[in-house]
């Protein structure tokens, strides 16, 4: 059985910035455990001599010329924003009061 703990899922949710509810954490702890158990066998099959493949079709040196292209207008940039001040995106305070 997997060693996924509730605390681990809470930690992962923090890293992933998702405010999971306690019920979700409970459920995910079980599910993640099952999933990890079923896929952990990947580590059995490939030895140190097998190189990793990150791209299905190998390519190298794909570069862009250093030439300025079309930019978004400020209006376009801000159009989808939940909140802005007319020129910049607005977000809540970064530090809490206790910080």
């Amino acid at each position: 059985m997997s060693e996924i703990t509730r605390e681990q899922v809470e930690h992962l949710a923090g890293l992933a910035r998702i405010a999971l509810t306690p019920a979700e954490i409970d459920r995910l702890t079980g599910e993640l455990g099952q999933i990890v158990d079923s896929i952990a066998k990947v580590s059995e099959v490939a030895g140190a001599d097998v190189p990793a493949t990150s791209h299905p079709i190998p390519l190298v040196n794909v570069f862009r010329d250093d030439v300025v292209g079309e930019t978004l207008t400020q209006e376009q940039a801000l159009a989808g924003a939940p909140e802005h001040d007319g020129t910049r995106f607005k977000v809540s305070a970064i530090l809490g009061e206790e910080q």
Binding site: R17, A19, G80, A81, P82, V91, I94, L95, G96
Partner: peptide, 20 residues
């Protein structure tokens, strides 16, 4: 921040709380 849904927790919160 730049697009899509924003949910602010009850009573506000930091940007981290809002993102989560």
């Amino acid at each position: 921040v730049r697009f899509g849904l924003r949910v602010t927790p009850e009573g506000g919160g930091t940007v981290e709380d809002v993102m989560a």
